[in-house]
């Protein structure tokens, strides 16, 4: 297991390096004169004139500053690393809670559908998940806003949750203050991502339930709950772990839209602003962060998978 972990880690490092290099190349080979300023600003100051360094030298400088955690300086946003890191907690909170909700929704609905395959309930849920799966995150967000804020108000009640922002006006006094602001965005993300997970879970469960060992488990007189969850779901969910690794970038891009809808000052919104503001430094920093997040997510998924499924551990050991 340890050598497996080390090997995966090595692959992740190479991948991260690749991601960074692709980011560099995109900017270096992009047309326009932005690039030299942008890549050289990694040194801490925007270079105005002087001889342009060659590709190799610029790349070396850039990787060097990257290793020091320096993402350069943007005229618009200042120190890019600082600018993005200040937003990271909000995006992380949203992504993690959205992911948890997505898994709970998705797996719950998927298992229910598989257990009731072919019934009207199954078909209704299939319709629902297809709609939610193809729905843009902002649309789901607006619907939720209507359901939890505007509808209750029309009925004379107070809104159930705050609509936008990350903390109460004037600032949070404790971590708990952030939670109400997380509810609608996380629900939005959870529903959109959960729909995909539900569709996957339903299919995987149906496949798992058709396996011999599920029939064997039934033949042993185990209760349907045990059969569904211990024997069916457990094996059906193993691939979900790696699916979640793949989902991580989807989760983050989902966060871009959700943060925009709910005016949450996270990395996603910062990148959205950076696009409109032609703030290449921030855009590149954000892309790097998302790329690294994807690599780390896949690494975690790989390790979890190896830990959860004994076959993988053995396969790589053998």
């Amino acid at each position: 297991m340890l050598s497996y972990a080390i090997r995966r880690l090595a692959v992740a490092v190479v991948l991260a390096f690749g991601v960074a290099t692709v980011c560099f190349a995109l900017v270096w080979f992009a047309p326009g004169d932005e690039r030299s300023d942008l890549l050289l600003s990694g040194r801490g100051a925007v270079v105005d004139t002087g001889p342009e360094p060659g590709l190799v030298e610029a790349y070396g400088d850039w990787v060097g500053s990257l290793l020091r955690g320096d993402l350069g300086t943007s005229e618009r946003s200042g120190n890019v690393a600082r600018w993005l890191l200040a937003r990271l907690p909000h995006t992380l909170a949203l992504s993690v809670s959205g992911l948890v909700l997505a898994v709970v929704f998705g797996v719950g609905v998927g298992v229910l559908q598989a257990a009731r395959a072919g019934t009207v309930l199954d078909r209704l849920l299939t319709l629902g998940t297809v709609v939610a799966y193809s729905a843009p995150a902002f649309w789901v967000g607006i619907l939720l806003g209507g359901a939890f804020i505007h509808k209750p108000m029309e009925l004379g009640m107070e809104p159930l949750f705050p609509l936008t922002g990350v903390a109460p006006p004037g600032g949070a006094t404790s971590l708990l203050d952030y939670i109400p602001y997380l509810v609608l965005p996380a629900l939005t993300l959870g529903i959109v991502l959960g729909a995909g997970i539900a569709r996957y879970t339903r299919a995987a469960m149906l496949e798992a339930l058709a396996q011999d060992y599920v029939r064997s488990a039934r033949a042993r007189g185990l209760s349907e709950m045990r059969v569904l969850f211990r024997h069916g779901l457990r094996t059906a969910l193993l691939p979900l772990i790696s699916l979640l690794g793949v989902y991580l970038p989807v989760l983050l891009t989902g966060a871009v839209f959700v943060e925009t809808v709910f005016s949450r000052t996270g990395i996603g919104l910062a990148m959205m602003e950076a696009i409109l503001g032609q703030d290449l430094q921030v855009l590149m920093g954000g892309a790097l962060m998302f790329g690294f997040a994807a690599v780390v997510g896949n690494l975690i998924a790989d390790l979890l998978y190896g830990w959860a499924d004994p076959r993988i551990g053995d396969a790589v050991r053998g």
């Binding site: 806003g145 804020i149 505007h150 108000m153 809104p159 705050p162 609509l163 936008t164 925009t260």
Partner: peptide
């Protein structure tokens, strides 16, 4: 800062 006009209006209606 709430960039979208409709979100500002929505937040006003919601009391945010």
């Amino acid at each position: 800062v709430i960039p979208s006009s409709s979100t500002r209006a929505g937040e006003l209606a919601a009391g945010g």
